[in-house]
Amino acid sequence: MDNINVLIIEDTPAESDALIQVLKANNYTVVGVARTYTEALRLFYNSEIKIDIVVIDIFLDGKADGITFAETINIVPNKSKPFVFLSSSKDRQIFERAKLTQPFSFLLKPFNELEILYALEMAVEKFYGQTNVFLSEVQDTVIGEDYLFVKKNKSLKKVLIDDIVYIEVEDRYCNIVAENEKFVILMSLTKLVQLLDPEKFCQTHRNFIVNTNKIEEIIVNDNLLILKGNHKVTLSDKYKDFVKKFRILK
């Protein structure tokens, strides 16, 4: 599990420092602080840093450049990231403009620790279109394109989906077995199947979802799958059809 990478766009050092302090205390990684619009763009499109969330102050040096930045990153498809606006006033005209940069979440200054964490979670939920996840008692994970966002205590963690070997479902919980770690998330199987990329993940049993890229051997006679890291997973008759997806060499 990795920390969430946050980019801060804030022109007042005192404010950004306070923010950094809060985020670090809650196991977020601040990958950069941009003071201006151009700097923000440069940091955002830097391929070396994987940004998960952007915190944007609407007013940069008295101009609404924060909104401009959001508008800019929204134009490029599949490149946008969840973001949160920060503002000290609820000016209607500014907000009407900001609202157009969907998904839209904002936080009014001054804010406390809980509020900023909540705002970040909301931004992730809204961005991936899975609302009321982190607040509910039946689910704690949002599934993004590349990562699972899992709520651990007060903060969010991410897991690279490609690292997952297989998922074993037990009641409301899912045991996620990755290459280097094992952990439990709170999520129903149906939702999981629904949200995971079917090209990558297949159900092999009532309780098992397998990353097809991690399969090393299929032993049909024994109803057994051998995965990377020597994990063994049962293959039930009901789900045997998934084998047809592979080109079988004869």
Binding site: K90, D91, R92, F95, N112, E113, L114, N132, L135
Partner: peptide, 22 residues
Amino acid sequence: KQAYFYKESLHLQSIIAHIAYN
């Protein structure tokens, strides 16, 4: 009537927790 006003579904428990935090 200068304030931005937008009604949405709010999680009451967290809202109260946020306020009480202060």
